[in-house]
Design a protein around this nucleic acid. Sequence first.
DNA 1: GAATTAAATTGCAAAAATGGAATCATGCTC
DNA 2: GAGCATGATTCCATTTTTGCAATTTAATTC
Lengths: 298, 298
Amino acid sequence: MLDDLALFVCIVENGSLNAAAAKLDMPAATLTRRLQKLEQALGCRLLHRSARRLIPTGEGWQYFERCRPLLASLQQATASLDAELNRPAGTVRVLAPITLAGIMYRDAWASFLARYPEIQLELRLANEREDLLTQGADLALRVGELDDPLFGQRLLGWGHTTLVASPDYLARHPVLRAPNDLSGHTLLMAEPLTSWRLQHESSGERMTIQPDGPVRLRVNDMQLAIEMAVAGQGILYCPLRAAEAALADDRLRNPLPGWRGISLPVYALWPPQRTLPARVRVLLDHLLAYSAGSERLI
Amino acid sequence: MLDDLALFVCIVENGSLNAAAAKLDMPAATLTRRLQKLEQALGCRLLHRSARRLIPTGEGWQYFERCRPLLASLQQATASLDAELNRPAGTVRVLAPITLAGIMYRDAWASFLARYPEIQLELRLANEREDLLTQGADLALRVGELDDPLFGQRLLGWGHTTLVASPDYLARHPVLRAPNDLSGHTLLMAEPLTSWRLQHESSGERMTIQPDGPVRLRVNDMQLAIEMAVAGQGILYCPLRAAEAALADDRLRNPLPGWRGISLPVYALWPPQRTLPARVRVLLDHLLAYSAGSERLI
DNA sequence: GAATTAAATTGCAAAAATGGAATCATGCTC
DNA sequence: GAGCATGATTCCATTTTTGCAATTTAATTC
């Protein structure tokens, strides 16, 4: 109906069925019939047509004048939207765990923003896994294995974890020899790393510790947790990357030599759709390149 | 495409395919498929849909926001136009011979205008038969038989004609006994009555005279021609109705007793279309009623 | 006035859309 | 956590629409 109206407008604009047919790249026969259908639907004749002339009726003119600007706006709107959506511009909404985004990918956001000045990045950080669809997000970063096979996903890299404590703390407390020794220590818990999963470096043996008893501090800010560890307040299980600087200059050490935290896969996840909008596509590519650049060690 | 977009907007407005299907009175299956087709055409997903949820994507929201107001305007425009065109309002353009409209139907226009205050009447008067379509006219009045069977037509009545001359003129000139006697007289010709067609009242015998020789005055204004006849300038062939008043008070007489001008059919003619717009319909009805009221004697 | 020609329309086979029923998926209740 | 109920999707017979070619129509030219 609206499409037929658009055809009618095109016919009037071009002055004949054949001209409109050429412009629209469809047979004139179709135009005739759809015009007839439209006239029937509207209950009035729109064009007086004979083999040689094509003259709008009074009704035809009225419909033409009233509908043409609106139809033109609509077509322009869809065309410009189409162009916009196929250009890396607009808002990209990303869901990510707080620490992952705030520490591991901090530089990735910065370079992304610098590279795509027309994209507005909206980071919605939360340690809880939120629903991509209800949040209206374009992309999510997830740590750990994914369960939804319908969603698009790519492995970005691996997030390494480690136990840390300050030399000061270690000097004041019993030496750790095995993971179970942790139960005698003061522990700091940084969400969302509530399960401490360790792996023996040579044997590959794995252990999972649920530090539920003697936790001195539980905080959902990784930076603060690390500062507390540096301050000698206890042993912390945290992303390797977050503690890198402190480990490098010996403000923190691994309290359990021979053991390290396991590595968790970091995935990018997006809603099921065949083709990703350009603005999301370029972010994904950027994140992939960034992860590869840091040797997938996050 | 635009129709599909309208469907999409309706789906978003109603929150689900089934709700939209109910409102639009079409099966949900159709909605699904046309939505899929639209998404394919636009090259992006518009709605995240699962069995229980229906959430517009970023693209979906953009299309929705941009297109909804335009689509609403369009639908409203067509709806209001539809209502308007089915109401006796707007402009009616009428083609008619000058004398017919100016003298015979003068009162009809007046009463029509009084009765339909919302109609603008546009009378395009010309003695030449002009093309309804190219003139963009809704209705034409035509005197004499019509030849185009495709156009809509109705007989409005009969236009009687007559010969007239002033008593003064008749006293100064030889008495007429038969039509051929006209050739000895001074003749006044009022366009478009260039063929003088006479009929014997009792025998029905018909004669056509082409007064090409001795025409004193040829004018395309009937009123002026009559005034010249009243002034005794010659014999005039004119519509009976135009001379009625002068005949009644003996300023004019029939110069050829026993003969009268023939009667010509007066038709209303309109472009081929099944249903006439309301504003034209009421004018036609009005003219028919007017003609019947004057006993079809014009 | 007859032939020409450009344009709209129609006929027919093929392709596409439709409508109703069955199926599949998933959030909600018990 | 299993069953239920709702909503999207798919299947298939039917109707509608399309595309091409042939036909008709009417203005223009010779």
